[in-house]
Amino acid sequence: MHTMWKGSISFGLVNIPIKLHTATEDKDIKLRTLHKKCHAPIKYEKVCTVCEEEVKPEEIVRAYEYTKGKFVVLDEEDLEKLRKENEEKAVEIIDFVKIEEIDPIYFERSYYMSPNEGGGKAYSLLRKALEESQKVGIAKIVIRSKEQLAVIRVYENTLVMETIHFPDEVRKAADVPNVPSEDKVTKKELDTAILLIDQLTSEFEPEKYTDEYRTALLELIESKRQGKDTVTAATKEVATNVTDLMAALQASIDRTKPNKAAAAPPRKKAATKVKKEA
């Protein structure tokens, strides 16, 4: 499993060297965009809005727009220094809470935690302590130049770090439009709804849920491939230096042919003259 972060995590005086591994994967089917006329892939270029010319990667800088049309340019060296200063810090568990107190709206992404060299015993200690106390740890960590709030918990005998949103990143539910302020339902309607919920209630078994759209899309793609309903992208012919050189040489030969034909008779005449004198 690929390691995407190395560091250490601590609670109290206990320090655990760890590695993070992405716990989930995106299985969305990536579709390419093609030119309908020739089926060649579409190229997206970075173009300056003023110069109207393509900008090379080395000509691009990053900046913060503090007001419309005005920016603070940030040097890559400063950003890299800031990132390293924060990423190299040990991640400290700052609180322990019950996971039931955290609403699922806060959860973002999951990472498996494995002990790095020498961290096995401390890893086991934290895992056992979390299980016995039925608590989760709250910590801060910098991942990919972004500070994250995180929950550390146990999942199937493995420590998992769940990044969660900061409170100011969660929009207020009160701002959602057209939400009824009161429940205008009858007792009969409510009893019927609860009965339906009871009938559909079961144990959560994640294996029985599948992405039906993705499965159907893959089947459609495969059926088209098997039926030879495919296209081949057109290729652009690019003149090479070798081709250009050969063309230039041939043109030179063609240009010199008339000169050679004109020069041939005098040489023949000269040879005849010498023979007669002999």
Rank of each mutant, 00 (worst) to 15 (best):
V151Q: 06
E108D: 13
S181Q: 05
N178L: 05
P104V: 01
T158C: 08
L125Y: 05
V160L: 15
L149V: 01
I102G: 10
R109F: 00
A129H: 04
E108K: 13
G137D: 00
Y112R: 10
H165I: 00
D175H: 09
V142C: 11
A139K: 06
N178H: 10
I143M: 08
A174V: 12
I105K: 12
H165F: 02
P104H: 05
V176L: 12
I164C: 01
V179H: 03
I164M: 04
H165N: 12
S133P: 14
A173G: 13
V160Y: 10
V136L: 09
Q148Y: 03
K140L: 02
K172E: 09
F166W: 08
A173V: 10
V151L: 15
R153S: 14
D168I: 00
V154C: 04
Y112T: 04
R171N: 15
V176Y: 07
Y155S: 09
S133K: 15
L159I: 05
P177D: 04
Y112F: 13
A139N: 02
Y112I: 02
M161W: 00
A129M: 14
G119Q: 12
E156W: 13
V176I: 12
V154L: 04
G137V: 01
A174M: 03
A122K: 07
D103P: 11
P180R: 07
Y112V: 02
K146V: 04
T163H: 08
L130A: 06
H165E: 05
Y112A: 04
S145A: 08
V160K: 14
E169D: 09
V160N: 12
P177G: 07
